Amino acid sequence: MKFGLLGTGPWAERTHGPALAAHEDVELVGVWGRRAEPARALAERLATRPFEDVDALFGACDAVAVALPPDVQAPLARRAADAGCHLLLDKPVATAPEEARGVAEAVERAGVGCVVFFTLHFSEPTGGWLREQAARGAAVPPPATDAGAQPPAEGGWLVGRADWLSPVFGGADSPYTASPWRREKGALWDVGPHALSVLLPLLGPVAEVTAAPGGFGDTVHLALRHASGASSTCTLSHSVPPAAAGVTAEVRGAAGVAELPVREEAPAAAFGRAVDALLREVRTGEAHLCGARFAETVTAVLDSAQQQLPTR
């Protein structure tokens, strides 16, 4: 499949680009960026060509991989879909619900494939853990409830927690510290999608979200009530010191307690699996869980939380 790469920042340079260039079933036909010089430099490193006209790149490829800020990504994703390109997008797809909905509608209207790179679903061993817990919870009947009580979580999981604590703004030497969109939107929008990508597939859609600021930096706490009757919490931050950083998640229910394992590989390896997932979707017509409609749901939950928080 002929791929074009949109974006020239650290994520494109360290993850998307190398994974596409190394994939045996991909031909990387070009790179487009909002600035011409970084696009030329990255294209040279990846042994491909730079494109100054993004629509020309769409016309030269079968699919595009996007490594751009979400509110730049969404309109370009719609244009790419309208041009007949399959989409490999980053999370969040957009920070406005109407923009995320527009991407999903464009995908369905054009009949193209779409996979969104929710990293935990494509990394190992976390991806295997998520699939295992979805099957494990579904195989365990939920406990009985009193007549008239709200039903328990579908599949047996009742309570969940997903915390993502990062030192990007807390003193880490990170290439993402200077990212303008991360500074503007904070951890809620950058790592909140990761947390929700764990909880929603295991506990079901969110019926209500309550959000509160954490008191320092961009830290935020979420309490979620799921339509299934389950509940969950998230703590999200880019402002902890390096010694306090970490990613943890668990679900509890009739199946017992399951804790998210530690990721053990580089993001580029996970991105290669996301490429595989898009290729498989295009070949078989079977949509991946991490598609445009799932990404739209994630944006809607985060937007509801954002509305309850003080203006940054």
Score class of each variant (00 low, 15 high):
Glu98Asn: 02
Pro125Ser: 11
Ala230Trp: 04
Pro141Arg: 11
Leu76Gly: 12
Glu24Tyr: 01
Ala60Asn: 11
Ala106Ile: 01
Thr145Trp: 04
Ala19Gln: 01
Val251Gln: 07
Leu87Cys: 15
Thr210Lys: 09
Asp163Cys: 09
Ala65Val: 02
Ser179Cys: 13
Pro193His: 02
Glu184Val: 03
Ala144Ile: 04
Ala138Ser: 14
Cys290Trp: 05
Ser166Ala: 10
Asp53Leu: 05
Pro92Tyr: 04
Arg312Asn: 13
Thr177Arg: 15
Glu184Tyr: 05
Pro142Ala: 15
Cys234His: 09
Trp157Cys: 09
Ser304Tyr: 00
Gly160Tyr: 06
His238Tyr: 13
Ala258Asn: 07
Glu250Trp: 12
Phe294Asn: 06
Ala178Lys: 08
Thr48Phe: 11
Arg312Lys: 11
Gly9Phe: 02
Val112Leu: 08
Lys91Thr: 04
Asp62Phe: 02
Ser197Asp: 14
Pro70Met: 10
Thr177Leu: 04
Cys234Arg: 10
Ala135Ser: 09
Arg40Asp: 12
Ala106Pro: 04
Val159Ile: 13
Gly4Trp: 03
Ser123Glu: 13
Gly9Met: 03
Gly111Ser: 10
Glu286Thr: 13
Glu124Ser: 11
Arg252Ser: 11
Glu250Gln: 15
Phe3Tyr: 15
Asp190Arg: 09
Val262Asn: 09
Thr177Ala: 15
Glu281Val: 00
Pro152Lys: 12
His226Gln: 07
Arg35Val: 09
Ala249Asn: 08
Ala43Arg: 02
Gly285Glu: 02
Glu98Ile: 00
Glu264Tyr: 02
Gly127Leu: 01
Pro18Tyr: 04
Ala187Phe: 00
Gly9Trp: 00
Glu27Ser: 14
His121Ser: 12
Thr233Cys: 04
Ala149Tyr: 04
Gly17Ser: 00
Pro143Tyr: 01
Gly215Trp: 01
Val64Cys: 03
Thr311Asn: 07
Ala134Val: 14
Ala211Val: 02
Ala292Thr: 10
Phe216Gln: 14
Leu199Ile: 10
Leu20Ile: 00
Leu199Lys: 11
His121Arg: 15
Ala211Ile: 02
Phe51Ala: 15
Gly171Cys: 05
Asp53Tyr: 03
Gly155Leu: 09
Gly291Glu: 07
Leu222Glu: 00
Val209Gly: 10
Arg79Asn: 07
Thr284Ala: 10
Pro213Ile: 06
Glu99Met: 12
Val115Glu: 05
Ala104Gly: 10
Val251Thr: 12
Lys2Gly: 06
Val107Gln: 11
Arg136Ala: 15
Thr177Gln: 09
Phe271Cys: 12
Ala47Phe: 04
Phe117His: 15
Trp32Thr: 14
Thr219Trp: 03
Asp62Glu: 15
Gly59Asp: 12
Cys290Pro: 03
Glu24Met: 06
Gly272Lys: 00
Leu5His: 08
Ala300Thr: 12
Val66Tyr: 03
Leu289Thr: 05
Gly7His: 08
Leu88Tyr: 01
Ala227Asp: 07
Ala21Asn: 01
Leu203Cys: 14
